[in-house]
Design a protein around this nucleic acid. Sequence first.
DNA 1: GTTTTTGCAAACTGTTTGCAGGATG
DNA 2: CATCCTGCAAACAGTTTGCAAAAAC
Lengths: 136, 136
Amino acid sequence: MEKEILKSVELKNTKKRQIILSILEKAHKPLTAEEIYAQTIGQTRMSFSTVYRSLGALTEKQILMKELMQDGKTYYQFNNNNHKHLLVCSICGEIIPIDDCPLHKLENDLVSKTGYIITGHSLEFNGICPKCTEKF
Amino acid sequence: MEKEILKSVELKNTKKRQIILSILEKAHKPLTAEEIYAQTIGQTRMSFSTVYRSLGALTEKQILMKELMQDGKTYYQFNNNNHKHLLVCSICGEIIPIDDCPLHKLENDLVSKTGYIITGHSLEFNGICPKCTEKF
DNA sequence: GTTTTTGCAAACTGTTTGCAGGATG
DNA sequence: CATCCTGCAAACAGTTTGCAAAAAC
């Protein structure tokens, strides 16, 4: 439950943060601040800065992770062991989440080659979806 | 030579575009508009919008490719068969280019799973470099 | 009642654009 | 000389921030 999540990272348990977390839980895919804001309308009255500040705080506490995508927007999702990368159609904008992250093996290679501790990665594929391919 | 590149894509052969291309050639790694602009100083007098418009035109003509990275800046590099991804130290900002792109196999998987035509990808690793790890 | 969170409006960063003058083929 | 390119300043999008009021603990 959202209340426990917030308590566990010493963030105050507010209605608005609960709502933001529950929107992300239901989504099962990364969302932008704008998309989250849009979904709050009707549920509660919340400003854009609250959305951003809540997402920022939760990201800092490692509950969420964020990724700046090629569309210039930052996407947020839960920071768990099955985070998702996206495949985006350049024509219609359709977004397909890719279910398992294929980069762990590559990260091991990098560790041995560079001596870095790898803390994260961002990955995005762009292409043309079957529907858009047909339109020619 | 830069002149031939520009001619081949029907862009006018200007001194400023030649300079931008030569800066990227010498760099052997992706650069931001800001970094390119900084390197033009002394060589010629060029406005920021010229840098952006030239990079935009060359990207549109597929001579260059661009990638928006997690620092919020767009990096440009030649669009050839050995494009580079970056490993960025979150502490000191050091950037290591990764020489061979490890995603081709993954893209084949995606094609068969989704029916998409894959036209590109972006990938970035973040971590902590050996020097910064030592400082603890 | 002290600390944290929120809303508002204004600021900020990287990038894009309209327009008038200048260079290219 | 028609077209493309450039510089300038203003606009733009997404995000962040300072401050005062409101809510949480």
